[in-house]
């Protein structure tokens, strides 16, 4: 029951973030959808990951998106009509959902009912991140640094004329 409510909120907020008339409301709905995903993580006993999701997604990405929307907002965006693309998108997404859902329902995936008994905590995540995946950790830090430098460089380009 809890799962049903949370997943419905997540899905409706995701659809609303794409379909809302005003872009700022869309960004707020996207933050609500991220919050629903964090609740899904809590249901999956991943408390640390839920905290990380709320910190990074709602705390930084949503706020960054809202700031950018306020910088580049135009009134005419709410009047752009999308013609054929919407029908093509709905048909493609529905076909994808139905085909993959049907195939996976008939596979062995729907037989897995119970999770394993031990609940992993963030101590294990830290141990594994340092011992096994230290190279990925280093490269992730490098990618973050490079992306910050790239964003700053792009923000400094002046208009030519």
């Amino acid at each position: 029951m809890v799962f049903l409510v949370i997943s419905l909120v997540t899905l409706i907020a995701a659809i609303l973030s794409l379909e809302s008339r005003e872009l700022v409301y869309g960004a707020v709905a996207l933050a609500l959808s991220f919050l629903g995903v964090a609740a899904i993580f809590i249901l999956l006993d991943a408390l640390y990951l839920a905290m990380f999701q709320i910190l990074v997604y709602i705390g930084s990405i949503s706020v960054l998106i809202i700031f950018v929307i306020m910088l580049v907002r135009r009134e005419k965006w709410s009047t752009i009509k999308s013609g054929n693309e919407r029908i093509v998108g709905i048909v493609t997404a529905l076909t994808f959902f139905l085909v993959i859902g049907y195939v996976s329902y008939n596979s062995g995936l729907s037989n897995i009912i119970t999770p394993n008994s031990s609940i992993p905590d963030f101590y294990d995540i830290g141990i594994q991140m340092i011992n096994d995946y230290w190279l990925i950790l280093e490269v992730t830090g490098l990618v973050l640094a490079v992306s910050v430098i790239g964003a700053l460089t792009m923000a400094k380009i002046e208009r030519k004329n």
């Binding site: 899905l11 995701a14 659809i15 794409l18 752009i80 999308s82 693309e85 919407r86 093509v88 998108g89 709905i90 493609t92 997404a93 529905l94 994808f96 959902f97």
Partner: peptide, 11 residues
């Protein structure tokens, strides 16, 4: 699926 719909339909 919602994400794919957005990628196709939105401008």
């Amino acid at each position: 699926s919602v994400g794919i719909y957005g990628l196709i339909a939105k401008r």
